[in-house]
Design a protein around this nucleic acid. Structure first.
Lengths: 126, 126, 126, 126
DNA sequence: GTGGTCTAGACCACA
DNA sequence: GTGGTCTAGACCACA
């Protein structure tokens, strides 16, 4: 999976990496067990500092999205979290975005269609 | 409307204010034309600096959510809807959150129900 | 001539009044010798403070656009400044606006056409 | 590019900086991709506060004239032209200045020549 | 009184 | 080192 980094974007680079890996896993571009580049390789390919690559991986690991192993390097975790309530952090994020969309004139139907469409584009993994 | 600021949160204070005002408008707690506290009053009540309050209002003003009037202070803008497509910034935000929710085990049905519920809680304004 | 004041605009009200009177004279809606409302009348009609109306008229008078007379009140000055070089203040203003227009993608031809058109809409007075 | 700031001018310092950068880009003194001084350097050189320098850059960034990069600092944005119509804000500004020039005695020909000359002095960038 | 601007000094996340 | 954020205190034009 190719990372697309925007160095002039407000989102820190390490977060851009984290976010793209998360979305990559969700939409199936990154399969469970798949190997990710080493910190060193990632830093070289993306033209970033190793500290930055390290920070992104540390976050992904702490969140349970990837795991590191001395032999197989960095891999996408096979077993992901199981069902249950959507955590507050995500709810809050959705609340803000939906508020902005609504004030921007988005209809209920259009917004839910959009969300469903986004979800479906990721469905392949299931 | 009472602002709830978390000074230890990663989100800057001025953004927390901006976000809460946006959500306040969307869910009807802030009506069009309603007066918001002056910069000074907001700073005093929230225990923050005037510059911080100013920055929050400047952002809201630039985004078209409020307007400042040399006579009547700060008011919620009446007309907001620009209708049409949901801007990319919001789409990207939704994509990330939905990816995280899905990896957290959220079913399609549950997620759309949540979004619909969030939207409906704001519906009163319509 | 009806004044259109925007109380939430960044331009101070007294300047909005001054600007609209200047443009009114230039495009012929205000003829030389024509009477303007008194400060009191202007303040009442426009819903503004008398100090604000006073400030606008004081500026217009100082710039030579209007004159006050005990008998005939406030009138548009008959004889306006004669030819000569465009003052630096206006040149600077044009330079900034033209720079912005050019960076916005305006072609030379289109920009000059626009300026000529604006000038012609005022021509009737000549 | 040397900034010329007038601390006693009615135009706020941060706006003077913004305006001069815009004109600098338009007339080619600032090339696309060129680095601007850091906020700290600008503040030091110009004898102003960091917050003021920050405000100027924040405005230029928001308007799309520059971009900030955590690695290479502040640079002039390469692509700017959005082509098409001249926005109302600029039209209004031109209308006022042209009215003032006309009342000051400027002939149509002289005024358009002036505008053309101003535009041509910036042409080198094309 | 109101928003807007500015300063001097400080801390922080990021790279 | 860099941009971003925040504070305490101040001044100013405007209304």
């Amino acid at each position: 999976m190719l990372l697309e980094l925007d160095f002039s974007h407000e989102t820190p680079i390490y977060l851009q990496i984290r976010n793209q890996v998360v979305m990559g896993i969700a939409d199936g571009r990154l399969a469970a067990g798949e190997r990710l580049p080493t910190i060193r390789a990632l830093a070289r390919e993306a033209g970033i500092n190793m500290m930055t690559a390290n920070k992104a991986y540390a976050l992904l690991k702490q969140e349970g999205y990837i795991q590191t192993d001395r032999r197989s390097g960095v891999t996408v975790r096979a077993e992901l979290k199981s069902g249950g309530a959507v955590p507050d952090r995500i709810r809050s994020g959705l609340r803000l975005l939906i508020a902005e969309a609504k004030l921007g004139g988005a209809e209920r139907r259009a917004l839910l269609d959009l969300c469903g469409q986004i979800y479906d584009e990721m469905e392949e993994t299931e």
